[in-house]
């Protein structure tokens, strides 16, 4: 029973994220359907969150926006986890990762925070979904490689790895069977925390006017579009904001739970 209580926050967080990501499948209305006669409707059975200034269904738009924003974050994070862990393990184990030039290069690249990478990429390419995915992936992958590399180097010193070597385990077996379970929790913790941060930055940039594209629905743009109507219909701004809050909160909760341990038994 106590164990179950411990898992509840994580399960809730995962549910929220899955709901926000796949919710667009259950959207009651077409998010781009404009019907000006139905603008600023109060919430009703057909439009659960009401309608916006052009008569579009806010609930459907929020769900589609979640697909865009979370899609960027989840897709980027998946690449980051896979590539980052692979590279990190290989570099941490071999001699190749130990030379001075490589290390200072890695330090130099990771000295710049992810937000700054987003700014650099946006400033060169303009904001779009592909820019966001590329910028997010590149900035986080390098940090992940550094994290896993350092962790692997520490693990390699430990007795169990020496024992595994002595009993004749091959290098891939040592890396993936023995070391990987010990580093994966740090990797997931890192991804969860940066995922929340990324949602904030992505919606922030589209909020200040660097939209993700002309016909792309996303939470930041929804909030900034509805700011003009905050006094007449505050729901327009509050619903997407609530979903941003819930998603970031879920990522943070997941990160905390992973840090506390018990989620994955290594």
């Amino acid at each position: 029973m106590k164990k179950l209580c411990f898992y509840i926050p994580s399960i809730l967080a995962v549910l929220v994220i899955v709901f926000c990501f796949t919710g667009f499948l259950f959207a009651p209305n077409n998010p781009d359907h404009v019907d000006v006669t139905l603008h600023f409707l109060a919430p009703c059975r057909e439009y659960p969150f009401g309608t916006d200034e052009m008569g579009r269904c806010v609930f459907s738009r929020v769900l589609y926006g979640g697909f865009t924003t979370l899609g960027i974050v989840l897709f980027g994070s998946a690449i980051v986890v896979i590539v980052g862990i692979l590279l990190g393990l290989l570099l941490g184990q071999g001699k190749a990762g130990r030379n001075v030039i490589f290390e200072s290069l890695l330090n130099a690249v990771t000295a710049i925070p992810p937000v700054a990478y987003l700014i650099i990429f946006i400033s060169a390419w303009g904001n779009s979904i592909s820019t966001m995915v590329v910028a997010l992936t590149i900035s986080l992958v390098l940090r992940m490689v550094k994290l896993i590399k350092t962790k692997t180097e520490i693990e390699c010193q430990k007795a169990y790895v020496l024992c595994a070597v002595a009993s004749g385990a091959s290098v891939p077996r040592i890396l993936f069977v023995h070391i990987l379970p010990n580093v994966i929790r740090d990797a997931l913790h890192f991804v969860c925390l940066s995922g929340g941060e990324m949602i904030l930055s992505i919606s922030g940039f589209s909020f200040v006017g660097l939209s993700l594209g002309d016909n792309v629905i996303d939470w930041g743009a929804m909030v900034s579009d509805s700011r003009n109507y905050i006094h007449t219909s505050p729901g327009l701004m509050l619903y997407p904001m609530l979903f941003i809050f819930l998603c970031v909160l879920s990522f943070n909760v997941l990160g905390c739970q992973l840090e506390k341990g018990g989620y994955i038994h290594a």
Partner: peptide, 10 residues
């Protein structure tokens, strides 16, 4: 927790 999870632009 709310402060960390709410975006600065909000």
């Amino acid at each position: 927790i709310a402060g960390v999870s709410l975006p600065p632009f909000f």
